[in-house]
Amino acid sequence: MTAISVKGLTKSYGELVAVKDATFEVPLGTICGFVGPNGSGKTTTIRMLLSLISPTSGSGEILDEPISHPERYLSQVGAMIEGPAFYPALTGAENLRVIATLGGFPLSRIPELLETVGLAGRGDDKYKTYSLGMKQRLGIAAALLPNPKLLILDEPTNGLDPAGIQEIRDLLSKLAKEGVTVFVSSHLLSEIEMISEYLVMLRKGEVIFFGKTEELLHRSRPTIVVKATKASDLKRLKKLVDEVGHPALLEGDELRIDADEKWGAELNELAFENEIVLKQITPVRPTLEETFFTMTEEEQ
């Protein structure tokens, strides 16, 4: 059983293809990041998964139920799409009561959820008085109302301060440990990298990667960055490492060598044999952001 499975999902608006032939799967019980730049089709895909818009072609399943029958799975799905949306004249708690009543969820969960998202003291204040971060938290509380098996969040950390982002990150990790599958979209790749075991990567409406985050990061070539006690020795070292088949780039007072961290010991030995004293050897793994840009450049 998968949480989300889509095959050839496409959405066109006339000539414009917002999502093109998207195919991916999200296993149950994981946090899956849904990443891509603004306008890459993330929200359109999420809307199709939640049956707010109908696909032009393709198919999909959520919790093993076809997306053409949303009434079969939406009671087990919590979602926040395109930011929070509530009634400004109602209080935060009353807004949640409207959603809970509509979905048939117990109202008794509301105080607990307000506590979970850090709004315990503000539930009786009108929504229109909330800050952007508080609105975002209320949106997450609403998404948690059904006690979902699958949580779909579109840019949940928008408007949150660093402490708020950390809290949401911790909350999502906690939910995943409890068995909830979290499908979270963001254009902040550094955020996603910290929490996601799985990734679906979009670019211009097309899925360019889906699978384990680790697998993606391992696809990128690692680098060793070295500094020498005498900067002038780096030129000599560059020539030496080039000769042994590791291309290197001299950048200021450091040398960036295309090599895995395991080669660090050999590099140290090579430098020592040639009377070069190294003061720093740092293995560097490319970040998700760097990997993303590398991949999209390759695609182009």
Partner: peptide, 16 residues
């Protein structure tokens, strides 16, 4: 106002 507040999408997720 369900359109202007954007709440229609929340309603439809709960009642498709």
């Amino acid at each position: 106002q369900e359109y202007t507040y954007g709440t229609l999408r929340s309603l439809l997720v709960r009642e498709p």
